[in-house]
């Protein structure tokens, strides 16, 4: 399999505080990779640094054969590197459809968006029903669907999701992870997922990284990690 994303020796942080101390990871095209780790391990910082929301201090990020280490987010989105951020960050006073159109911001006026919009509406029929409703008035689960839908509008090659299950009921978490599996199988989408939920995410992932204190402490295929479940749990402090 071909490599879509390669992160090497990534160091990053906020202000004077270093959070990542040399994170390296790879995502093969068409795979589903999960990053596990306890709170404060640097999972979110890793995704934010890959996206360019915060500037990497050291290390390199190669995406689709191109060095994108120093590119800002608005140059990464058109290349197909797209993040569903922690806490969703929707536009609460815009309608569902306006949020989706904002997802395609870098494509508006250049391409026909109706196909992508149809795809999102077929994945999440609820969004179609509520398309003229303001995003801020929807339930948490619906908002998470909208956040994923908005990211899909950019036509990502790699979809990164930061704890999409956070704060949602187990049934809805199941639905959302199910949707990710479908996206990967039907659309051939590559997915990098950050999760706290070990059992459910290892079930759908091909490969997993365990992060602790800003370093990768364990990695392997999902089945390898499932065999070492005790070790994983020890790292995660469960």
């Amino acid at each position: 399999m071909e490599e879509l994303l390669r992160v090497e020796g990534l160091e990053s942080g906020y202000g004077e505080m270093q959070v990542l101390w040399g994170v390296s990871l790879k995502v093969q095209r068409g795979s589903l990779v999960v990053i596990l780790g306890p709170n404060g391990a640097g999972k979110t910082t890793t995704l934010r640094s890959i996206m360019g929301i915060i500037r990497p201090w050291r290390g390199s990020i190669t995406f689709d054969g191109e060095d994108v280490t120093k590119l800002p987010p608005h140059k990464k989105v058109p290349r197909g590197l797209v993040l569903v951020p922690e806490g969703r960050h929707l536009f609460p006073d815009l309608t569902v459809e306006e949020n989706l159109l904002m997802g395609a911001y870098t494509r508006v006026g250049k391409e026909d968006l109706s196909d992508t919009l149809e795809l999102v509406y077929s994945l999440f029929p609820r969004l179609k029903e509520r398309r003229s409703q303001k995003a801020g008035t929807m339930s948490g689960g619906e908002q998470q669907m909208l956040a994923i839908g908005r990211a899909l509008m950019a036509k990502p090659k790699l979809l990164m999701l930061d704890e999409p299950s956070q704060g949602l009921a187990p049934k809805i978490v199941g639905d959302i992870l199910e949707t990710l599996v479908r996206l990967r199988e039907e659309q051939g989408l590559t997915i990098l997922l950050v999760e706290q939920n070990i059992a459910q995410s290892l079930k759908i992932a091909d490969y997993a990284y365990v992060l602790e204190q800003g370093r990768v402490v364990l990695e392997g295929t999902s089945s390898e990690l499932l065999e070492k479940e005790d070790l994983v749990k020890a790292y995660l402090g469960i």
Binding site: P73, V77, R88, H89, L90, M102, Y105, A151, A154
Partner: peptide, 24 residues
């Protein structure tokens, strides 16, 4: 306008605007 939509998006959620590719 599309520009106006982007302005409103930045006002409502700056990080949200960044992740959809708005040059804030």
């Amino acid at each position: 306008t599309k520009l106006g939509l982007a302005i409103r998006a930045v006002v409502q959620d700056k990080e949200g605007a960044m992740v959809v590719g708005v040059d804030v």
